[in-house]
Design a protein around this nucleic acid. Structure first.
Length: 700
DNA sequence: AGCACGCCGACT
DNA sequence: GTCGGCGTGCTC
């Protein structure tokens, strides 16, 4: 019965010649019934490896598994592992005949001689393109990322493989260029182990390092040299940067060092067609080096010799889409899979990177004292004590030291003024004791809305007419962070002859000329100045430091370093004024320019407190019942701790969040356990979902 | 997730 | 008798 059914080509005997008789019978039967006038003729199966294992790309979170399909003979050559296919999925078998089921896209992950599925196999409907985009290495990486983040393979694949574009596919990619010669160390000779790192790459080794980059404009070129050294060994290289602006800088440095043809930039802003065209050039082995933003971490560079992640503390390295993989962690997984070298670099050092050094997995690649002295600006602090004595600061909001530094520096070049974004922080706090101003009804944070500066609760919206501090009784609130625009106005009045430029969220300047000017920028939007800034003023440091976040100190230091690194060296008169308490650890780390030391201390403290990244955490968010249910179903690994659940603020249905914390080494077990529990809940068809996030970014 | 099957009640 | 409510379970 089965063997004569037109819809079910036999897979039992791949070498059997297709039989004409049943085909004609079937046609006859179709004609008589006339129910399915367009029913397909039976398709003979491929002679070799007639089974295709397919990853069906459907948003079925719990269906993280493969399905076997029969390979029709006419697709025998094209349906190779890694190609995109279209299959009928979800059909039902009625009287031995398939009905219903929609066409969905998927990837062939393997060709097999036989299936272990006991039922009859449906045929592949279409090979969308013969391009083998999902290489075995990429599949393994995506699998590892999905496991690491308790996510599904299909979700990770949609991050890793860009959407197809037929026109881009039709164009041939040029043949790869021969490997370039190994570069000389260039700026790497400012680091004691820099030249060694480079020659190891050029010699085909895979060194791993956490690189504390010297301030100044040299780092894009240093990255380019590391890439060139890797190419010289006949291997490929991949650089991931936090945004399009820094990607462009590294891309330019690569072009300057290598000329065109060796490398390509992969960013979202290219548009689908161009992005896919370049991605294909990489996939086809035509281009061996890639610089790009976070999704580029999956780019199928062949014979990968080096993975670079620049500024891994930047939040943009975390993907917006589930399961929110972080480029640094993808790099670590990929390095393990493909035996590549790793360079985690930045002006700052994250606690995660410090851990790689502490465990011996990576070597520190740091400048010596002398190199630092030559490259870093002078850093001065303005603390509360100074501000209290400073009558002028009250009126102008600009401490006298900052004002004097700016006036003096403006004779020699541009001055950068870093101002936290308006509405960035802690909203309002008591002017005397710094206690956060909270709503008397619901404890939500207060903010001054509109121009009338009337206080309102951010959560419940109630106005607060006569606030006073519950801790100290003061009636005075510390002013909200003044935005870049108003700061620019004030500075313009203070220095009437000097042009003022702003760079912020909506209009980011990439560069400014070396002429005297005030450049007011929000963190992350600082333009690079031609010849370096003569000085930088880092205003409202308290705002960066008082954010209710585990990473507040690390993040403040990272942003200060980014701005201060654009200033000329002290020897050339470069000065940085930071308005923050000089006793605080991040401030001291800035003054000493010691991000690695700061991260190492922070790491020790986190380890003692059982906080990430030494321990691994997962956040479970959903309705109270759903979170409790998922927790009950999860077989937690030994030593796991459940924190909460606590209510999470926000509109709509009340939500809760529980944090699960596991000791070092149990991260993979935690992800596996959570995924298994999620699968049980999905199978039970409980529509009340729980969002699971490994390494939640915002643990206060 | 869809989608079809199936076992109940109100209609032609 | 027959239409259709959506509870249940499967999808190669």
């Amino acid at each position: 019965m089965t063997s004569t059914d037109p819809q079910q080509p036999s897979t039992a005997a791949p070498d059997a010649a297709p039989d004409a008789a049943p085909e004609q019978l079937a046609l006859l039967r179709e004609t008589v019934r006339r129910a399915r006038p367009r029913a397909r003729a039976p398709q003979p199966a491929a002679a070799e490896l007639p089974v295709a294992r397919v990853l069906v790309d459907k948003g079925l979170a719990h269906l993280d598994q493969y399905y076997d399909y029969a390979v029709p003979a006419k697709m025998a050559e094209t349906a190779q592992p890694g190609v995109r296919v279209r299959v009928r999925f979800g059909a039902r078998v009625v009287e031995g005949r398939r009905s219903g089921g929609g066409l969905v896209d998927g990837f062939v992950v393997a060709r097999l001689a036989a299936s272990d599925y006991p039922g009859p196999l449906a045929p592949l409907s279409l090979v969308l393109s013969p391009e083998q985009v999902l290489t075995p290495a990429l599949l393994r990486l995506c699998r590892a990322v999905a496991d690491r983040y308790a996510g599904t393979l299909a979700d990770v694949l949609s991050l890793a493989v860009p959407p197809r574009h037929a026109r881009a596919e039709a164009d041939p990619s040029p043949p790869p260029l021969p490997a370039p010669p190994a570069p000389d160390p260039g700026g790497w000779d400012r680091y004691p182990s820099g030249a060694g790192f480079l020659s190891a790459l050029a010699g085909g080794e895979s060194p791993r390092a956490v690189w504390t980059a010297l301030p100044g404009p040299g780092w894009p070129e240093e990255i380019a040299r590391a890439v060139a050294a890797t190419l010289a060994s006949g291997r490929g290289a991949l650089v991931v940067l936090p945004d399009g602006r820094t990607t462009a800088r590294v891309d330019a440095a690569l072009t300057a060092l290598l000329g065109p043809g060796h490398h390509t930039a992969l960013t979202a802003e290219l548009g689908q067609e161009e992005r896919y065209r370049r991605w294909l050039a990489v996939s086809r082995g035509s281009v061996r080096a890639v610089a790009g933003t976070r999704a580029a971490m999956f780019a199928p560079v062949r014979d990968l010799g080096l993975l670079v992640v620049w500024d891994d503390g930047d939040g943009s390295h975390s993907d917006l889409h589930a399961p929110h993989p972080h480029a640094r962690d993808v790099a670590l997984l990929r390095a393990a899979e493909e035996g590549a070298g790793v360079l985690i670099g930045g002006l700052a050092v994250t606690v995660e990177a410090a851990r790689l050094v502490a465990t011996g997995w990576a070597r520190p690649l740091v400048p010596d004292r002398e190199g630092l002295r030559r490259a870093a600006p002078l850093v001065r602090t303005v603390g509360d004590l100074d501000l209290a004595r400073d009558e002028a600061a009250r009126a102008a909001r600009l401490p006298t030291v900052a004002w004097q530094t700016a006036r003096e520096a403006l004779a020699r070049g541009p001055v950068l003024v870093q101002v936290p974004r308006r509405g960035y922080v802690p909203r309002l706090a008591c002017a005397r004791c710094r206690e956060q101003a909270r709503c008397a009804h619901c404890v939500g944070p207060l903010e001054a809305r509109g121009s009338d500066s009337l206080l309102h609760c951010v959560w419940c919206g109630r106005p607060e007419a006569d606030w006073h501090c519950p801790e100290c009784g003061s009636f005075r609130l510390r002013a909200q962070v003044v935005g870049a625009r108003r700061t620019a106005d004030e500075l313009g009045r203070a220095f009437p002859a000097i042009p003022v430029r702003t760079s912020g969220r909506d209009a980011v300047l990439a560069t400014v000329p070396g002429a005297p000017a005030l450049v007011v920028a929000t963190p992350g939007a600082e333009p690079v100045a031609d010849g370096g800034y003569a000085a930088a003023l880092l205003l409202d440091g308290w705002a960066l430091l008082t954010r209710p976040d585990l990473r507040a100190g690390e993040e403040a230091l990272r942003r200060w370093l980014a701005a201060a690194a654009l200033v000329r060296p002290h020897a050339e008169g470069g000065t940085v004024v930071v308005v923050a308490e000089p006793t605080l650890r991040p401030v001291q780390a800035l003054v000493r320019w010691d991000p690695a030391g700061h991260a190492a201390t922070e790491l020790q403290e986190r380890a003692q407190l059982g906080l990430p990244p030494v321990s691994r955490m997962a956040a479970l968010t959903g309705s109270p019942a759903a979170v409790a249910d998922l927790l009950a179903l999860t077989r937690l690994p030994p030593g796991a701790d459940v924190l909460g659940p606590v209510p999470v603020p926000g509109p709509g249905e009340p939500q809760q969040r529980a944090l699960v914390r596991v000791p070092p080494g149990q991260g993979a077990a935690l992800a596996t356990a959570l995924k298994a529990a999620q699968a049980i809940r999905f199978a039970r068809k409980q529509s009340d979902p729980v969002r699971v996030r490994i390494d939640p970014p915002d643990i206060g």
